[in-house]
Write a protein that binds this DNA or RNA. Sequence first.
DNA 1: AGCGTTATTGTAAACGTTTCCGTTATTGTA
DNA 2: TACAATAACGGAAACGTTTACAATAACGCT
Lengths: 336, 336
Amino acid sequence: MPTVTLKDVAKVAGVSYATVSRALSGSPEISEETRRRILKLCKEMGYTPNSVARSMVKRHTDIMGLIVPSLNNPFMSELTAHLEIYARTRGYNLMVCNSSYDYDLEKEVFSLLVGRQVDGIIMIPAGHESYEPLNALTSQVPTVFISENMKDYPENYVSVDNHRGMQIATEYLYSLGHRSILYFGARSDSKTHQLRLDGYLSTCEKLSIEPHVLRSSYTRSSREVGYAMGGEYFSRPHQETAILCAADMLAIGVMQAAFEAGVRIPKDVSLMGFDNISFSALPQIDLTTVNQPFQQMAIAAVDMLLERIKNPAAAHAKLILPPSLIERKSCRALGK
Amino acid sequence: MPTVTLKDVAKVAGVSYATVSRALSGSPEISEETRRRILKLCKEMGYTPNSVARSMVKRHTDIMGLIVPSLNNPFMSELTAHLEIYARTRGYNLMVCNSSYDYDLEKEVFSLLVGRQVDGIIMIPAGHESYEPLNALTSQVPTVFISENMKDYPENYVSVDNHRGMQIATEYLYSLGHRSILYFGARSDSKTHQLRLDGYLSTCEKLSIEPHVLRSSYTRSSREVGYAMGGEYFSRPHQETAILCAADMLAIGVMQAAFEAGVRIPKDVSLMGFDNISFSALPQIDLTTVNQPFQQMAIAAVDMLLERIKNPAAAHAKLILPPSLIERKSCRALGK
DNA sequence: AGCGTTATTGTAAACGTTTCCGTTATTGTA
DNA sequence: TACAATAACGGAAACGTTTACAATAACGCT
C-alpha cells in the first residue's frame, strides 16, 4: 500500500535520488560499491520502479495497443497469443481492445489507445466499407495492420497472400475434378475478403469454370454465420459439388448445417476453409484448408511496428507471406 | 507527431492551463462560455489528453492487468473477451499477459504489472504446487483470482463450484447406468482440479462405486494432453464404460484419440467434459459437459476487483457460481 | 458606502522518474 | 607542487497533468 519510491531509498541510503536512478539504470558513472549498496537496499525496502513516472520523462511507454475484432474466433486468439508473447520478449506489454466488429468502436478504442500513449498499435481491422476516417488516426501513432492494404491509403501491414491462397484452394478443388464450386464468403468490403473472393473468381476464369458466389450480409466470419448460410443453402435445391469458404470458422458452421441437413462431407459435397485454425485439425472436423502462418505473422507484425517506432518517417512497409495447402479429409476426388 | 498539450491550448486560448483542465474535466467552477470556447479549441487543435501524465497525479491508471495461462484455450480466450469488454464499459483497459502455464512467468508478469501501476489484477492461475510466493505479490495490488481458493492464504476469487460440478457429472453418468467411470484429469495440485477430482471421488463414495483415476503429469488441460492420455489409455486393455474429463479440451483430445483407436463415442464409451466451451456444441463433437457461466464470471470478477480497488482494506470476497449440466450426445444410457 | 459572498480565473506545488549540468574529490602528469 | 583530467555524486529542471490555494471581480445586502 504505502509504495516506496526512489526518493525513499535515496533518503535512507543517504544519497541523492539521481544516484539511485543511476544505480538502477546501470549507468557507468557510479561506483560499483554504492551501486551494490543501493541495489541491496532496493530489495530490502521492496522498491518497484514506477513505469508511469518513467514514461512521463522518457516519452514512451513500452506498450503496444492491439485492436482485434473478436477473441472468440480462434484465428484471432491464436494470433493474439503469439503477438503478446513475442512483444513481451521485446520489452513491450500489450493493451488489448476488442472492437466487436464495430467500426465506430474501432475508431474509439484507437483514440483511447493513443491517449494512453501507446508507442504503437497493431490492428486487425474488422473490415468495413472505408477506412479514410482512420487515416487521421494512424498519423498519430505508428500502426501496422494485420490484413492487406485498405483501399483508401498507404499503410504498414503484414498478411498472407489472400489472393494466392484462394487460387491454391480453387485449383486444388479443380484438380480433384470439381467443376461447380460454390464460394461462401463474408461481406466483401473487407479487403481481405475482397482479395480472397478475387482469387477464387480469377482462378475460375483461368480454368474456364463458372463461379458461384454466396455472400453473407455480415462482415464477421463466425461459425454462426456459416451455420446460417449453410442451413439456407442446403434447404434449397443445389448442385455444386464443392464449397469453398472464406474462413475456417465459416466452414465449420457450414459443416454443422450440413450435418443437420443430412448432407455428408465429403461424400455429398466437398468443403474447404481458409486459415487453418487449430480446431480444423480435429479428426471430427478434419478440414482441408489454406494455412496462414500465425506465428510468423505475429512476429513480423511486432518487428515491423518496432521498426516504425524507431523510424516513424520511413516508407510504409508491407509483408505478404505465402499461404500453403493443408490437405485433410473434407474434400474428395470426383469419380469419373 | 508534435503532440499538442494542455499548455499549448492554454496559450492560444489565453488562459491558464488550470482553466483548460477544468474545461475538460467538467468542473463546475468555470463559466459555460469559456468552457465552450476551450472545448472547441481543443477539437481544432487536435488535443488528446495524456493519460500517463494524468495517472501520475491522480495516482491510478484505470488499467487492470490480466494474467492468463494461455489464449489458445477457448475457455481462456472466451473469458478474456468478456473480461475486456466489460472492463472497458467500466472505464478500464486491460493489459493482458500470457503466463504460458509457467509459474515463474506468472510471478514475473505480476511484478511487471504492478510496476506498470495497474489498479488491480485479475489472475487465472495456471495451478501450481504452492502459491505462497504470490502472497507477497498480491499484497501490493488488489487482486482477484478466477479459480477457487489456493491452499495457502485467503484471497478474492470467483469461480464455478467445481466440486459440485463434478458431482453433477458423476451422478449424471451414474443415472445413465455407468458404474465404472474413469476420471481423466490434469495434475491435481491445481486447486481447481483438486476440487473437481474431489467432487468425483466423494460422489463415487456416496454412490458406492469404485473410482478410477488417471492423471496427466501436465498441469495444462489441453487437447494435446487429452490426446496423449487417451491414446495411451485406449492402447491398453480397459473396461470403463465412461470417461469423465476435467476439462472440455481434454475431452476433445480424448475424442480424437478414441477416433483414431477405433473406439466409438458414445457407443463404446461415454465421454463427458467440463467447461462448456463453444466448440463443444458442434454436432461433430456434441460433448455432454458441465457449464461454466463465462460471462457471469467475467462480470463478477471485474466488479469484485472494482470493489477491492475502492476499498482495499475490506475483507476478502468470494463468489462461487453454480454449474449446470449440458446434456448432449457424447454419453449413452447403458442398456440392461 | 462598506462588507461579505460567490463566481471565475490564475499560481504553483505535486506526482516519481530521468538527465543535464555543475561540484567536489581524487588521481595522473609534468 | 601545481594543474588538468577524471570519477563520483548532488541539484534542479523537465515530462503533462490535477488541484489546493490565492486572487480578483462582480454582486447583493444592510
